[in-house]
Amino acid sequence: MKTNLLSGRSTILKFIALIIVIVALFSVPSWGSQYTVMFFMLVCMYIGLGQMWNLLAGYAGLVSLGQQIYIGIGGYALAVLSNYYGVPLFLGLIIGGLVAMLISVGLSYLLLRMKGMYFAVATWITAEALIVIFAGWNYVGSGNGMFIKAVRGMPTSTIYYYSLVVAIITVIIVVFLLRSKLGLGLIAIRDNDSAAETSGVNIFKTKLYCMMISSFLTSVIGGLFYMSQVWVQPYAAFAINWTIAGMFIVVIGGIGTVSGPILGAIIYVFLNQYLSQFGGISMIILGIIAILVILFASKGILGTIQDKFGFEILSARRHSDRTFTGKPIEELEGSNL
C-alpha cells in the first residue's frame, strides 16, 4: 500500500513537471528573440521527424530511407491547395497528411513484403523517383518549385505553436501506441517475426498502421517546415537529408526509446545551427558522431544511460501486477486460475 501511495505521488510530481515544461515551451515567443523562437521551432519539427522515423526503424523494424517522400508531399500539398484552391493553411496541413497516408498505404502493399535493406533502398528510390517526377511537372512549378503565397507575413511564433503541438502529439501518439495492444505486437515482431506470427500477430496490418501514422505526421511536419520556408522545391523537399536528420536524431538519442529522439533533436538542431558557420563541417561531425554512437553505444545516449541505471522514461514495459500508471491490478492477488 505504501509503495502504491509513493508511486501515486511520484506520478503527480511527474505530471506537474510535465505541465511546467509544456507551459514554459508555450511561453517561448513571449520572452525569446526571433532566433530563439526559430531554434525551438526547429527542435519541435525535428522531434516529430525523429519520433516518426523511430516508430518505423526503432519499433516496427522498418529502416526507412524515404521519410522525405512525406515531407515533400506535405510541402507540395500545402502549396498546391493554398495557391490553387485557396484552402486555409491549417486544412492544407491535414489534407496533405491524408494524401501522404494514402500514398503510404499504397507503398505498404508494394514494399512491406520486403525485408531489411530491400525495404530501405526501395523507399529511398521511390523518393528519388519523386524528385524526377516533381522536377518535370509544370503544375507544381517543375524544377523551380512553388512559393506558398498564403504564408507571407505569418509570424514565426504561429508556426512555432503549430510545431510545438505537433511535436507533443507525436510523443503522445508513440507512447499510447506502444502501451496499446498494437505496441505489444510491434515489439513482438521486432524481436522475432515468425514467432510473433505464430502467436497470432498480423505482421502486415501492424506495420501498415505504423506506416500510416508515420506518414501522416511526417507530412504535417513537412507542411509546417515549408510554411516557415515559404518556398518548396523538389530537390530539397524530397532530399535524403530529411531521413539523414531523422536517423541521426534517433541513433544519437537512443533508437527504440521514446525520450531518445527528443534529446537527439535538441543536439541535432544545436550542432546544425552552431556549426552552420563552418559550412559542410556540421554534416561531417554529425556523421562521425552517429558512427561512433552506433559502434560504442549502440543504444544511443539515453538508451545507454537507461540501461546502466535500470530505468526508462515513458516506458512501455508491462508489469504483471500493475498498470502503466502504477495502479495495482487487484484480481491477481486472489486469482486461483
Binding site: K181, L184, I187, D191, N192, A195, S199, G200, R318
Partner: peptide, 24 residues
C-alpha cells in the same frame, strides 16, 4: 524463439491477447 526484449509476462501476453483475440 522468445521475444528477448520482453519479460516472460509480456511474451505470454502477446499470445494471450493476439492469439486468443482478447484485449490486453
Amino acid at each position: 524463439r522468445p521475444f528477448e526484449g520482453m519479460t516472460v509476462f509480456e511474451n505470454v501476453l502477446v499470445g494471450a491477447s493476439y492469439g486468443a483475440g482478447r484485449t490486453e
